[in-house]
Design a protein around this nucleic acid. Structure first.
Lengths: 202, 202
DNA sequence: CAAGTAAGTCATCGGTCGATGACAAACGCT
DNA sequence: AGCGTTTGTCATCGACCGATGACTTACTTG
């Protein structure tokens, strides 16, 4: 019989795990985010995710329906809203985006990679590519484009988007240490310089 | 018996295909490049590639050893050498690289995507990521870095690399039409502006 | 033309994948 | 305490994957 006051280590190890639907769901989601971010959709198996979460793989299908649905829920939702002052110039917005996508350590945002980069690593799937295009063009680029003056604001906005995405790829896929080790303020200053060079150029 | 002078359409269709090792190998390589570029390594099956080439999947293993070896050979080799004047500034080199990676229609270079972008789409595999890092850092960034003056030449070179890779991602993965439809000269001019903004900034 | 070699095909193996349904055990309510 | 519900597990299915070896067919050579 186990005493109410003292629980030995053996008791702790042999104790049946607590059953908690919400906690299990969250554990699966976090494990999925980690694995998908690291290995992409195709490179990650449901058994792998479940093992990370410490449960059986069957629960993925009970709680999320399918692997695709799990991916969608892992990626969706936590994408942040538009950042910064709506009246500021494109350089200020680009700086805020750069900090959000690549420079932030993201410790408070679920700990994982930015959803855009997670999707980017699973871009073999056409559905993922479509969602990525939707997200990038509909949200980020549209916001940037509205702050450029001149005829080809769309092109210049796209170049800024390319710079930001490329920074994410450099850090997360190519894994070059330069961007990771650099001082965020210094990187942000350089990004501002590059974007400012695009303003008021007919 | 088929006449030596006249071959009917039915004869053509029923004729056994010509057996040519070199031609088959090339057909497999081209099909592999297309498929890998479009769907990534994991998303592409050997039977798929072989069907595109019009042969049996077994030949892949006979000619290349394994699917991985086929991928390596499909990606390797045709990466172009350093471009442009070695004494030119970083902006000139960046312009040349931009034309090579994203603006070129690549019709003469095998018709497919740039090898860097092909690798990028298969970056779920750690080996591919390692090769990609090797290629990007060892070749492209090193060349850029040597043309920057100042303390953090590596960081500024990496930002230029991020811009170029991001442009490739925008065109090839996100498939935004803006970059594809824009005039290459106009895009190149904007890239030069952005890179020039990084020069001589302590 | 006949024999030998090379090119292409067929059948199949072992493994892994996503997904399903039956089953066992812990929880909550009365 | 007892019972129904919820949570987690096990066994397994069918499809597909990369890969192998035996076999068939076309080309080459003498």
């Amino acid at each position: 019989m186990i005493s109410q006051q003292v629980m030995t280590y053996a008791d702790f190890m042999n104790a049946p795990k607590r059953r908690d639907r919400a906690a299990t769901r969250t554990a699966l989601l976090e494990a999925a985010r980690r694995r998908f971010a690291e290995q992409g959709f195709d490179g990650t198996g449901v058994r792998e995710i479940a093992a990370d979460a410490g449960v059986d793989a069957t629960l993925i299908f009970r709680y999320f329906g399918s692997k695709k649905d799990l991916f969608a829920e892992a990626v969706k939702g936590e994408i942040p809203e538009g950042v910064g002052d709506p009246d500021a110039g494109p350089a200020a917005l680009a700086e805020a985006m750069a900090r959000e996508v690549v420079l932030e350590d993201r410790a408070g945002h679920g700990g994982g990679e930015h959803p855009l980069l997670v999707m980017l690593r699973s871009a073999g799937r056409p559905e993922v590519r479509a969602a990525l295009r939707e997200e990038v063009c509909g949200r980020y680029l549209a916001d940037l484009e509205s702050r450029f003056d001149g005829g080809d604001a769309d092109l210049r906005a796209e170049l800024v988007g390319a710079l930001l995405i490329g920074m994410g790829v450099m850090r997360s896929v190519v894994a070059s240490p330069v961007l990771s080790d650099a001082e965020p303020d210094r990187v942000a200053a350089l990004v501002v310089e590059m974007v400012a060079a695009l303003e008021n150029k007919p």
